[in-house]
């Protein structure tokens, strides 16, 4: 998704750093080798970035300027939750929902290009006050959840499964908005996706709440989640 932008703007002091939030490096490897990006891809086995930047899902993004300052804090990287309108018989989503998914992504990519080109003059760069206003801050439960999550992932690796599962469950209960915590801990299907019946049930329980929080950016969809 980012390679074309990187190709066009790498000479403009712009770089993409992709972070795989994957406890199992081998699960991430084929995706990286297939895409073979020329920008750096790092593996965040313990979701350290989620703890540092208060992230709750993928894909999320942070825009950081040449001085290491945050000009757009953690936000959904242009994803629209079109999958919520999936028809399980035809395995398709309605055309208009699919169009919104595409336009949402395109709007976000165009904004990044604008920033890569214009830097601080881009309309998408927040003032410090706006950056703070758009920032979700962690609370004590979230801080505790990250600690339990990290311990749970490690104990799972050393096959203390029962203890690990209890910690991962507790982490998710303390930080229910984090889909990363829930999905990393969940059972996966044969295709590697944590998208079994338990996932769909949890998505359905969202009701009118968003799976991907809308991005505050002109041209982004503002409607509620699509219905299946």
């Amino acid at each position: 998704m980012w390679q074309a932008i990187y190709d066009d703007y790498q000479n403009k002091d712009f770089i993409v750093i992709a972070i795989a939030m994957d406890n199992d490096i081998e699960a991430a490897r084929p995706w990286i080798e297939e895409a073979a990006p020329t920008y750096p891809v790092m593996i965040d086995r313990y979701h350290q970035l989620a703890d540092l930047y208060n992230m709750v899902n993928v894909p999320q993004a942070v825009w950081i300027n040449e001085d290491g300052r945050i000009v757009r804090p953690t936000e959904n990287a242009g994803a629209f939750e079109g999958f919520r309108a999936l028809n399980f018989e035809t395995m398709t989503v309605p055309e208009e929902v699919s169009a919104t998914v595409q336009s949402s992504k395109a709007t976000y990519v165009a904004a990044i290009r604008d920033w890569a080109e214009k830097g601080e003059d881009s309309v998408h760069v927040f003032s410090p006050n706006d950056a703070l206003a758009h920032m979700d801050k962690p609370d004590d439960n979230i801080a505790k959840a990250h600690v339990l999550f990290r311990l749970g992932l490690y104990l799972r690796q050393i096959s203390k499964n029962e203890e690990a599962d209890a910690l991962l469950k507790q982490a998710s209960e303390l930080h229910p908005h984090s889909w990363s915590i829930w999905r990393q801990a969940a059972d996966t299907l044969d295709n590697g996706l944590a998208a079994g019946p338990a996932f769909w049930q949890r998505v359905n329980e969202l009701g009118e709440s968003h799976y991907y929080k809308p991005v505050d950016m002109e041209g982004m969809p503002t409607e509620g989640p699509p219905k299946g």
Binding site: V16, I19, W31, Q60, V62
Partner: peptide, 9 residues
């Protein structure tokens, strides 16, 4: 300028 972007398998 760094676009920090997450994804997962």
């Amino acid at each position: 300028k760094v676009l920090l972007a997450t994804w997962a398998s």
